[in-house]
Design a protein around this nucleic acid. Structure first.
Lengths: 145, 145
DNA sequence: CTAATATGTAACAATAAAAGTTACATGAAA
DNA sequence: TTTCATGTAACTTTTATTGTTACATATTAG
């Protein structure tokens, strides 16, 4: 699989959990849907568990389930829970800090990105898991383009 | 060096060119300042050359120079010239396209990111190379924090 | 003209980040 | 108490980026 697919995996898993209310889904079952590995699913959902978005139960009939309705789960919560960065941070060589030019480039970029990050966070907060789920249901036709 | 440092390298190089008006700087000289390799500098500045931001001349006394004043070079132009992405694109497994959930997650994220990208582009267009350069000059004291 | 010098670029190596995998300890439930 | 699922460590594989070497091409000074 490609890079930075963790957020995509998380959202995909959450929609599946929402689509199967009442019963818990195992990381093994989810990993089949998501075409990945059970451990990868556990790693991703583990972070969402710490944020109180999902919960896991062990033993027979165990697995993952949502901790609150899809209307109350925003993309921003998911994004924050995973410590993900939507913005690529431009990095300079740490050995280069004595150069005033490098430092000012870094400062300008950092200021810009912090600002942009706040902007994105506000927008992410407006998208709910239920929005994605309803799109998935409406788009039940096999459009492959 | 770290990941996604190309934009940082580009800006750093541009400020150096601006700080030495009149004469061309070689990729070798720049690579020393930027603590990287001449070929890396040529690769990065080569993209800016195609966009008409800098130019390169060969032979003795050759090297790189700005094609227009720093006031007329915006971060957006640099960013666009390099085909860089400030936003990380979340990627799903291509084999997964038959799943309606994956497709709708992708669609929602793509829409969101396209929207955010446009927002960022507009903000980048407001920052000029001269802004960064003047910060570098004002910050001539050795603050290492 | 030619020697010196700089870019342009291909090809390959090294590095680092992300994901995949295996293995097993831990805990819950029937 | 057996079964099943998570939690997590350790390791391997994969991929993206950067670094490096090598050399062809072009330009300019002398």
């Amino acid at each position: 699989m490609k890079r930075s697919s963790r957020l995509s995996i998380a959202l995909h898993a959450l929609v599946h959990l929402h689509a199967q209310p009442g019963r818990a889904l195992t990381s093994s079952a989810l990993s089949t849907c998501l075409m990945t590995n059970p451990v990868v699913v556990r790693r991703v959902l583990g972070e969402l568990r710490e944020a109180g978005i999902v919960d896991a139960s062990k033993g027979p009939n165990g697995g993952w389930s949502l901790m609150r309705p899809a209307e109350d789960i925003t993309l921003h919560q998911v994004y924050a829970a995973m410590g993900e960065r939507l913005l690529i941070r431009t990095e300079s060589d740490p050995g280069d800090v004595t150069c005033a030019i490098v430092r000012s480039v870094d400062r300008v970029m950092t200021d810009f990105l912090d600002d942009a990050e706040a902007l994105l966070a506000a927008r992410l907060a407006r998208v709910r898991l239920s929005d994605i789920a309803s799109q998935a249901i409406n788009a039940g036709f096999p459009r492959l383009d």
